[in-house]
Amino acid sequence: MPKGMLIIDKERCKGCGLCIVACSHPVLAFSGELNRSGYNVVHMERPEACVGCGFCALTCPDVAIEVYRARVPA
């Protein structure tokens, strides 16, 4: 199981790509899929590499990304 997971709100994404650059591991990429506003939205190209650092979400100007991290076993 990956350490991190993102939920990207496709309709909020404006395809600016800042999250792609901010990602500390290459996880994100443009999906080629257009949302209702016509933006090429970002998706998790390599979800297995996500560590849940949250840099993408910090950088996202549209607050379109939710970040989850695996629970550390007690």
């Binding site: 939920i7 849940g52 949250g54 607050v63 990304i65 939710e66 989850y68 991290r69």
Partner: peptide, 16 residues
Amino acid sequence: MPVSTEKMVKVFGRPG
């Protein structure tokens, strides 16, 4: 893409 966050904890979301 179906995502499962069941075993995960949210660390960043939209501020209330």
